[in-house]
């Protein structure tokens, strides 16, 4: 089942008057932003401003103090958050969930089968993973681990990519490749929300998370 090109996909994301806090500390309140299919949003802001928390709140892992995150297929066709989580969202954080004792191939195959469908070949080719597939993931460098995690986004198509510093560990060559993959995803009607320190090299909206409070 090709979710990104199928009929059921997120066509619009509405963040409505969202307020978040971690423990006692209020990160921001009154944050509203809409995103349509094919659009990217770059989250900027100082360390600790709440970029990661915002991504996790969109994924439904943090309950907001106020406001809501809504997904819809189109006008009047809401998608339940549980459905969005189960089918339409990829979250790529600092922690990549790779098991050190397993090979890159085993991990990618599991993540792909878990998030969607089977074939990993095109993703392996796009991210130059072929020489790494039989290595245990503990032997991979930070950049190689990130490429392996990005491969999951390609192998198991889902409409909304939530990326936390996606390019940070990558060198110039793979930054360009990853940026191109994001552009291809947007061109196919997908959405990208990325927390970044350096500006993304693609047309996108920008939201300063720290300034929203």
């Amino acid at each position: 089942m090709d979710i990104a090109n199928g009929s059921h996909m997120i066509g619009r994301l509405c963040i409505d008057d969202l307020g978040l806090s971690r423990g006692e500390r209020v990160l921001f309140h009154g944050l509203s932003v809409d995103l349509d299919a094919g659009e990217a949003l770059a989250l900027t802001g100082a360390n600790g401003a709440g970029k990661t928390s915002l991504l996790r709140a969109i994924a439904g892992f943090i309950r907001p103090d106020a406001g809501a995150v809504r997904f819809s297929e189109g006008p009047g066709a809401e998608i339940e958050p549980e459905t969005a989580r189960a089918r339409h969202i990829h979250l790529l954080g600092h922690l990549e969930g790779l098991k050190g004792a397993r090979t890159a191939r085993e991990e990618l195959a599991f993540q792909t089968a878990w998030c969607g469908r089977g074939g990993i070949d095109s993703a392996v080719e796009a991210l130059g993973l072929a020489p790494l597939l039989d290595l245990e993931t503990r032997k991979l460098s930070a950049g190689q681990r990130r490429r392996l995690s990005l491969a999951r986004l390609i192998a198991a198509p889902r409409a909304l990519w939530l990326l936390d510093e996606p390019l940070a560990p990558l060198d110039a060559r793979w930054r360009a490749v990853a940026t191109q993959l994001m552009q291809d995803h947007l061109a196919g009607g997908g959405m990208v929300i990325a927390a970044v320190h350096d500006p993304l090299d693609l047309p996108c909206h920008t939201l300063d998370v720290g300034a929203a409070s």
Binding site: F61, L91, G93, H94, L98, Q111, W114, C115
Partner: peptide, 10 residues
């Protein structure tokens, strides 16, 4: 290691 996030998005 963050795998729980992945499991929660399954």
């Amino acid at each position: 290691d963050g795998a729980l996030d992945l499991l929660a998005l399954g």
